[in-house]
Design a protein around this nucleic acid. Structure first.
Lengths: 170, 170
DNA sequence: ACTTTGCGATTGACACGTCAATTCCCGGGG
DNA sequence: CCCCGGGAATTGACGTGTCAATCGCAAAGT
């Protein structure tokens, strides 16, 4: 009573066995890919991808500094996550935090020279790794297809997200 | 359209701007997808995807029990990760651990009724979520393409992995 | 003026993962 | 017999992420 209408995509409740197999393959492989990238970045530069995202944003900012909430919005992180991460990065000497003059309780994050150098040293091997692990693995057509798949998934997530998601998103 | 020397793929060191954009889109979207799935599973069933993987493996095992190293191999986890996770799941009453008769230092993991029920209650909504977030977002062609992309990425990871994988001495 | 509210940012408690020990127990040499 | 190497599993330290308080302070309300 719950199905028996093949062909119509809106009729099924559950994925088919083939779809499920592809799903598992897809999600596990992308996770493995992230994890490999992470460990490459770690061994090449002693940075995590989180560190890299923060350093990238700060490097591109004018004065190599940003308010922490701007930074959070820019890289799409929750503020609390950023705060924890900045604390760890500050302990490692990659950046400094300073009271912000313009905004009441605002904190400004600025790159140290060590941070700038770490970023500089990391970026080339990191990009090369992306090429090796992702671009080189696929045909040009597949790269394009991957982009389209990502766009479709993202669009779908956004649609669902607005109607029935978690509290505030961004 | 931005590059000047199309054709030779082995010549470049770094990804093009287009490739990089696709990469970021792809990796961030898949991460968002995982995270959405995780939170759906959590709110539907109070389980993490890790819990789900463990419960699935145990449910399918004969006697609803497995040696912990078999389990680790089956779901592809490191033993230490599994050990930590089993500890947390045991505290929540989803499973029990017992000394294994057949193997010297072997530990056997077995499902409790609570664990079996939690899994039973979780599986339908979980599969439905996979359908909603993944299958429904893509055209049938894209689903197939996603499978091929995953296979290509995985194969490439495996090739690289065997030649220059983990640091064994430094 | 004294609260109240609102926002930026931080903190604490906890789940999760990895790496490097460490424990337990076994089965050989010496 | 005692030690020693080795496999199974656990443990501890620590980085990382989330959620729910909390803190500090300025602008409003009364």
């Amino acid at each position: 009573m719950t199905e028996a209408t093949p062909g119509r995509r809106g009729g099924r409740q559950l994925p088919t066995a083939d779809e499920l197999r592809i799903w598992r393959d897809f999600i596990e492989t992308t996770a493995a890919l992230s994890s490999r990238l992470e460990s490459r970045l770690q061994s090449d530069s002693s940075l995590s991808t989180g560190d890299y995202a923060v350093l990238l944003a700060l490097s591109e900012a004018e004065g190599q500094a940003m308010r922490s909430s701007e930074l959070a919005a820019h890289i799409g992180w929750e503020r609390s996550r950023l705060s924890h991460h900045l604390g760890r990065m500050e302990r490692r000497g990659l950046l400094r935090r300073r009271e912000c003059a313009t905004v009441p309780r605002g904190a400004e994050v600025l790159l140290t020279t060590a941070g700038a150098e770490a970023f500089k040293g990391a970026t080339f091997p990191h990009l090369r790794t992306i090429r090796e692990l992702f671009v080189d693995a696929l045909t040009p057509d597949q790269v394009v297809a991957a982009g389209e798949i990502a766009a479709a998934l993202r669009a779908h997530l956004d649609v669902l997200g607005s109607s029935q998601a978690i509290p505030d998103s961004e």
